[in-house]
Every structure is written in C-alpha cells, then in structure tokens.
C-alpha cells in the first residue's frame, strides 16, 4: 500500500468524524412543548415576547437575571428565566430565539438572540409636512 493511500484513509476517517460530531453537536429548533418533553437537553426556541405580561429586570438585585414571558411559534406561552443581562432594546424585538432548557414550568435560558424589525425590514422614507 502506498503512503498516499494510508493518508487517504486517515483523511476519510477524520472527515467522517467531522460529519458525525456535527450531527451530534447540534441542538434543535423546537417549541416549549418539545423542550418540556426532554428537560435535560438544550433547545433553541423561537417565539415572540408577550408584551402584556411583566418583564422583570432589576440590575441592582442581580444584573444577570431577567424574567419575561414568551409565546412560541405554536402559541404556547411560558415563563422564561434568562441568566444574562437584559438585552438592549429588548422591547423592540420582533422575534426571539432562546437557547436553554426547560426546568419545571420555567424555561431556563442561557442565551438569547433577537431580531429587531429595524435590522431587517427597512425604515420608511419620511418627511414631515
């Protein structure tokens, strides 16, 4: 066997390893209900902020604790405990992606991604009259 073949086999092995770990090291976009069914795994839950309910952030008490209510894409609402600071412009967010896991009736989020309307849908031309 030539050296090149040995090298080839090693490469293929590593490549398969890369594919395999990629498939294993992902989390899943899910709803709260799906997250609740597997309380120990990490999920990405996409949804919208419930603006009618209270969002509590008291940085003087704990700068790394923020709670609010989110409605996921299937319409289910859940209390969210985010272990981070309240993101700037949180109220303006149009869509939220939470990363974390379900614990009891609360979704414990370790990270949050937001989409603000201004970032994607552009503003409108304006002129006062």
């Amino acid at each position: 066997m030539k050296k090149i073949h040995i090298l080839g086999i090693i490469i293929i092995a590593i490549a398969i390893g890369a594919i395999f770990t990629t498939l294993n090291n992902t989390s899943t976009y899910a709803s709260f209900a799906e997250a609740a069914s597997e309380p120990d795994s990490e999920f990405h839950v996409v949804g919208k902020l419930n603006k009618d309910k209270e969002a509590v952030y008291d940085p003087k008490l704990d700068a790394n604790l923020f709670t609010f209510y989110m409605v996921d894409n299937k319409g289910m609402e859940c209390k969210v405990v985010l272990h981070k600071n309240k993101p700037q412009d949180f109220e303006r967010s149009e869509q939220i992606v939470l990363i974390g896991q379900m614990q009891g009736l609360e979704f414990q989020a370790s990270d949050i991604l937001m989409k603000c309307p201004s970032k994607y849908n552009e503003g409108q031309p304006q002129a006062s009259k």
Binding site: L61, N64, L65
Partner: peptide, 22 residues
C-alpha cells in the same frame, strides 16, 4: 465579577454567569 454587594447570592442562582458588574 459583581462586587457591588447588591447581591446575587440571595437568589441562590448558582448558574448565574456573574460576568457583569453593576
């Protein structure tokens, strides 16, 4: 780390990442 004394521990959140200072 939060040294403001306005405290985090009373909430007992061990998973608080505690990277922020007030």
């Amino acid at each position: 780390q939060n040294t403001s004394g306005k405290d985090v521990a009373q909430l007992g959140k061990s998973y608080s990442n505690n990277d922020n200072i007030l």
